[in-house]
Amino acid sequence: MTVARDGASAAATIHQAAERLRASVGQVVVGAEQAVDLVLVALLAGGHVLLEDVPGTGKTLMARSFAASIGGSFRRIQFTPDLMPTDVLGLNYYSQGTGKFEFRPGPIEANVVLADEINRATPRTQSALLEAMEERQVTVDGETRPLPTPFVVLATQNPIELEGTFPLPEAQLDRFLVRLKVGYPTEENEVAILRRFEGRSPLSSVQPVVSGADLVALGEALPSIHVEDDVAEYAVAIVRATRSHGAFELGASPRASLALFRAARARAAIEGRDYVRPDDVKTLAQPVLAHRLLLSSNTRLRGRTAEDVLDEILRDVPVPVADPA
């Protein structure tokens, strides 16, 4: 796919592709429109997703649906305390048949990788994902291998069961573009789920609607989406406010500013606009920033969350008024 580099044409093309992906994933995933849209934002912006929710809310199904909708490969890695880095990245082994060392790729070499219960693995294994997520490559025994494109990690963790887990370090949390929660479905949607899955799984009928190469091309067109200076300054003001707020021991980094900027462009394009509104920035501030912030001990003792403090910051930071004509 060749995507025009003027903003209006690029936005129209991205919007059409996003609508096809929404419809395709919607054949399987019921009532999680906000979560689906955030995954779409991450896919377009070239980011990764941290799904934080209790088991059974459709996280694996969502990941499989997106992989099928882009015709991409899908691998699921079940993270456990005994999982080794080579179990993720791959390893060199001696082949008796050829008399040579050969490389056996790990499950990380896929377009969509579901890192299930990532916080159950040891820090050593968690860190094995860092290079892959940031550089789109893996290094085994000094040899670097590129990962397929597109490449997205959807990692899950259960926020309730903390026994036997290893909290993700800040450096790794910072690699996730967004953190989201699927949540329980409404009563109406839960009835719809029963009906939809009472026979053959609808996942088996999902066909590719956007190729992986097209998805990459669409992402490369995002810089054509216009961002006014005051909107960019608004995004930076929100991020900088987290660094000076007393509730945080560690505020958001410049990487967070870049992530918010890219995500806002992706959201605007998905909605068919060739410009970013302040509302794009404000809507994405929570999913893009909250997981990157480290609360002070006093704030945690008072029972406040990063989302609570971000709400306060979003109320205090002045919002630009005018949209471009």
Rank of each mutant, 00 (worst) to 15 (best):
L130F: 12
L258N: 14
S257K: 14
E33P: 06
M133D: 05
D214S: 12
L40F: 01
E52M: 01
L50C: 06
V317K: 05
V152K: 07
Q16A: 15
G46Y: 02
V236H: 12
L162A: 13
E109W: 15
E109G: 13
L260S: 07
T125D: 08
P55C: 02
H15P: 13
L61P: 08
V210C: 10
P208T: 05
P55Q: 13
A18R: 07
S69R: 07
V39L: 03
D214A: 08
L173G: 10
A11R: 09
P107N: 03
G97D: 14
R243T: 09
L203F: 03
D311V: 12
D316T: 15
G99Y: 07
L215C: 11
I118N: 03
E271W: 13
L83N: 05
I225C: 08
G272P: 02
A10Q: 04
F197K: 09
F261Q: 08
F74Q: 01
A132E: 02
T13P: 07
T125R: 06
A128T: 11
V317I: 11
V41T: 00
V88E: 09
R64H: 11
E188R: 13
A42D: 09
V317Q: 04
A235V: 00
A266R: 08
E188S: 12
V49D: 03
V209T: 10
G142L: 00
R76Y: 05
A155I: 12
L43D: 00
S205C: 10
A247N: 12
E187A: 15
R124N: 00
L222V: 03
P167S: 12
H291L: 13
